[in-house]
Design a protein around this nucleic acid. Sequence first.
DNA 1: GTACAGATTGAG
DNA 2: TCAATCTGTACT
Length: 211
Amino acid sequence: MRQKRLKRNFYTRPTLSVAKELLGKYLIRKIGRKKLIGRIVETEAYIGPQDKASHAYKGKITNRNKTEYLEGGHIYIYLCYGIHWQLNFTTEKEGKPECVLIRALEPLIANKHEFTTNTTNKDSQKFSAKFAKIRNLANGPGKLCRWMKLDKFFDEEDVTKSKRIWLEDRSEKILLPQIVKTKRIGIDYAGEWAKKPWRFYIKNNLFISRE
DNA sequence: GTACAGATTGAG
DNA sequence: TCAATCTGTACT
């Protein structure tokens, strides 16, 4: 299988394109000799300064959100509800506070007898207890950070160069009809901006955070 | 210094 | 349905 790390020019593009094209890409987290691999199945776009749901609304710069202004291809990670880390990748040029939140991963587990990456078959919903366990590893933005052991020490990380976390293209293309667009989760305070269809997930995938 | 909301989660 | 848990932010 052809595997190549996503380069700078993938990230320094319009955020909505990056959010859609991140679907079907692979997030690799190296811990010692081991690798945790997750296929990205759900994302959300945040487009400051105009987006009221963005931390960079009205061009706000704080100690927390300053990494959001970095050039595309950097990690912006922050703690939510005092408990959960939220992994974002910056997009666009330096100075533009736009990013993509990774909301769910399909864990790539070596044992192919348990399940395959082809989860479009509704019959596979009759999954085993083990399958349920795997499904619960990364089907939410906080859960995937817990699984991959990601925290504030990854803020500002350049994923085009990092040796502990990066993204790979494994020649899988998610076509437009397979992408479901919905409003973003948990930002109802953002008025009109809350209605924007800036959440994307892979149709019929069993590893998304919710429908 | 104090007050309070939040890009969530899991238990009940 | 709701509490856990704590940082960032606004305000006194």
